[in-house]
């Protein structure tokens, strides 16, 4: 099964993500979200950002993690392409994110926000899965 697939939603967009470990799940969720914004990563100067977060629970943490990448895109013009999630432990995580600083305006899909809509991170036979919806 692909690590992330698009999920139908009448007005917005969603991704269903699977991962053998929580670290994989978080990295695949990031890749999935960036693919909703632009299927082909836009060009730019290589850049790396370190993301460290803590949240009350796993569900909040994965939403906060993706919201952090949206913030980096909107404010720092940084498009994440290579999220290396080093550690997800309870409600805390650390990632080193490779990507590109965009050179100008990109006509891509604008995600307004990562929603908490029906969010649940679940354990499966092979690891973890979750479905995340974005407000477009």
């Amino acid at each position: 099964m692909a690590p992330y697939v698009n999920v139908e939603h009448t007005a917005d967009a969603g991704i269903h993500v699977t991962g053998g470990t929580l670290e994989e799940l978080f990295a695949d969720a990031a890749r999935g979200m960036m693919s909703v914004i632009s299927e082909v990563p836009p060009e730019g100067w290589p850049e790396t950002h370190v993301v460290e977060l803590s949240s009350p629970d796993l569900e909040s943490l994965i939403v906060d993690w993706l919201a952090e990448l949206l913030y980096l895109l909107e404010v720092k013009n940084f498009f994440a392409t290579d999220p290396r999630v080093e550690k997800v432990d309870g409600g805390a995580m650390r990632a080193v994110v490779g990507g590109a600083r965009l050179r100008g305006v990109v006509h891509a899909t604008e995600i307004k926000a990562v929603t908490h809509h029906m969010i649940s991170v679940d354990r499966t036979m092979n690891g973890f899965e979750t479905t995340i919806y974005f407000d477009l």
Partner: peptide, 15 residues
């Protein structure tokens, strides 16, 4: 009108 409006009004991600 279309060309000028599209040029004058900022649109798109990062605009």
């Amino acid at each position: 009108l279309a060309t000028r409006l599209f040029r004058d009004v900022p649109t798109g991600v990062g605009s």
